[in-house]
């Protein structure tokens, strides 16, 4: 059990000394995953809204495909993105391989289906509840959609956190498209993989603990945002 004690001590000393390399890695992890999350929300929430509240041909097929994509292994996503961004690939001329942008692209592909499918389920339930009322009140569809998004804000926040969790914790895709290059594309998870492969198990575990603390911090911030939302809604 001593390795856990050692890992905890290492984690705290890294945090307390504000280790520069560590801060850089944390910063890049957050930057990549939050950017991916933002883009995935911009793409995924409208798709979810469309799937949840409109009827169209092949709707169930689209939903089935997206649901299957939710379980796509990160390594496969990484490989597909690698093949496209490689200099010999379709988008090689953009020179995006081994950059944070490549990592963001891979994570967007990973988490957009999660955000789309989970939000579509939530919005579908809401639509079920409000459909008759909104027809009765003659609410225009765009307005109805906006209302659904606002009404579902707490549940959607949970969906977004799930997406963030998947992004920040995955290693397979960012390892392949980022290359785990020091000071350029090294993030928390690839650093953990690297330290593990060096046999630095205590340091790897310490980084894992810090990742956990980071996730807790983000969830706490989201809770704060949630209570801020509800105060503003009922404040006046």
């Amino acid at each position: 059990m001593s390795i856990f004690a050692e890992a905890t001590a290492t984690a705290f000393s890294l945090i307390i000394n504000a280790n520069a390399d560590l801060l850089e890695i944390i910063g890049l992890s957050m930057k990549v995953s939050l950017s991916a999350l933002l883009i995935a929300c911009i793409l995924g929430l409208p798709i979810g809204a469309l799937l949840g509240t409109f009827d169209f041909a092949f709707k169930n097929t689209v939903k089935g495909i997206l649901t299957a994509l939710m379980g796509m292994p990160p390594v496969v996503v990484g490989l597909i993105v690698y093949l496209h961004l490689s200099r010999s690939g379709l988008f090689g001329a953009l020179e995006l391989l081994y950059t944070p942008t490549a990592m963001i692209i891979a994570q967007v592909i990973l988490i957009t289906p999660i955000i789309a499918v989970l939000s579509s389920q939530i919005l579908e339930d809401l639509h079920e509840e409000y459909r008759d009322l909104f027809i009765s009140l003659v609410v225009p569809p765009p307005n109805a959609l906006l209302t659904y998004l606002i009404e579902a804000r707490y549940s959607l926040l949970t969906v977004i956190l799930a997406g963030f969790g998947r992004a920040i914790s995955e290693v397979g895709a960012v390892m392949i498209v980022g290359g785990n290059i020091d000071h350029l594309t090294r993030v928390m998870t690839t650093a953990i993989a690297l330290e593990t492969s060096k046999g630095e198990l205590a340091l790897a575990l310490a980084l894992g603990l810090i990742l956990l603390i980071l996730a807790l911090f983000v969830n706490f911030a989201a809770q704060q945002a949630k209570s801020l939302l509800s105060v503003q809604r009922y404040g006046g």
Binding site: E129, D132, L133, T147, E151, R233, Y234
Partner: peptide, 9 residues
């Protein structure tokens, strides 16, 4: 069926 907002809203 009410919105999850205040009475006034």
């Amino acid at each position: 069926v009410l919105l999850k907002r205040s009475v006034r809203q």
